[in-house]
């Protein structure tokens, strides 16, 4: 299980960012480098939305299966299932998305003749750039357009894949002069490019490499698409160990305490210093982005239970409401 921070630490409160404007969006892509807590944040945001009375669809894009356990079910399917009041969860399956698309939009009963559909799928998805992505993002936009849900929260692909997903309608629009998918790109772009409808929320932890990648990601999204990035989640920020006014005391005590004890504190202080530098670097390079700060909520031990940390993150997110 996750242990909470030991007594004696002054817990810096979660950020004072008001999440209401974020949850007013219809389509929210939560992304981030592997291991930064992307799924945790996506689930917490979806729960928060659902508990505020919004009909919420949570979609896991990469079928890694980490969302199912977090919402308390064995597995997720393409067909959304109700997992708690107001919250539906699904996993993206581009082949099924194509199937649904053909059923909804191809009026001739062609679909019945196809055996197997997989052959078509392999072709359109693997050979044509952007098509697999558009089938995924298209399904999400479709749910928004149909008003099936108030908000769709996406546990999106990791950084690197998210840009090609969001840019897919644009790419297919440019590459294909005609064709049914081409015809679909315009309304998708309307949803993706409207900053009051759709936004990407990167999740970042205060480490130099993650920060670099996040800065690059935000620049790519802004450079290659017209989708907005106005919020980011700064996850696992450790609060300072002591006030700056105590540093002079520390410099005296350092020589009195045993070397091992001193080294522990030096290490911990130094780690936090590196975190602060990473955060400064981040803030300086992403322009107009509001940070939702989630403090480090304790460590991992063998019998880990993701629900515990999810509950804590949800609480931290909710504290500012």
């Amino acid at each position: 299980m996750w242990r909470s921070a030991p007594a004696g630490s002054t817990v810096e409160s979660a950020s004072a960012v008001d999440l209401t404007p974020l949850l007013r969006h219809r389509l929210v892509f939560v992304t981030g480098k592997g291991g930064v807590g992307k799924s945790t944040i996506a689930v917490a945001l979806a729960r928060l939305a659902a508990r505020r009375g919004l009909r919420t669809l949570l979609c896991e894009m990469d079928a890694k299966g980490s969302v199912a356990a977090r919402v308390g079910v064995d597995s997720l399917t393409f067909e959304p299932r109700l997992v708690e009041s107001n919250l539906w969860a699904m996993v993206m399956d581009t082949e099924q998305s194509l199937r649904e698309y053909l059923r909804l939009f191809v009026k001739i009963p062609l679909i019945t003749k196809i055996t197997p559909l997989a052959a078509v799928f392999d072709f359109v998805a693997d050979a044509a750039p952007g098509v697999k992505e558009i089938l995924g993002v298209g399904k999400l936009c479709h749910e928004v357009r149909q008003d099936n849900y108030d908000i769709v929260i996406v546990d999106a692909e990791a950084t690197g894949h998210i840009v090609s997903q969001i840019a897919a309608p644009q790419i297919v629009g440019q590459l294909a002069g005609v064709g049914m998918l081409r015809d679909q790109t315009e309304w998708m772009l309307k949803i993706l490019e409207d900053e009051s409808t759709c936004t990407v929320v990167p999740v970042v932890v205060p480490e130099e490499l993650v920060v670099n990648e996040t800065v690059d990601l935000i620049q790519s999204i802004r450079g290659q698409t017209k989708t907005a990035v106005r919020w980011a989640v700064l996850n696992r920020l450790e609060e300072p160990l002591m006030m700056s006014s105590d540093e002079s005391t520390w410099s005296v005590l350092r020589d009195v305490l045993s070397p091992e004890v001193s080294e522990s504190l030096r290490r911990a202080t130094s780690e936090r210093q590196l975190q602060r530098e990473a955060v400064t670097e981040l803030r300086e390079n992403v322009g107009d982005v509001e940070f939702i700060v989630i403090p480090e909520v304790g460590g991992w031990s063998e019998e880990g239970d993701v629900e515990d940390v999810d509950a804590v993150v949800l609480q931290r997110l909710g504290e500012e409401l």
Partner: peptide, 25 residues
């Protein structure tokens, strides 16, 4: 030993405790 302010010393010692807790984990 050091003549430092008691409250400040106690805060530094709790910081040490947090650091050592993290290290053992």
């Amino acid at each position: 030993i050091t003549g430092c302010d008691g409250e400040s010393v106690s805060r530094v010692l709790s910081a040490v405790q947090v650091a050592r807790h993290t290290q053992s984990r």
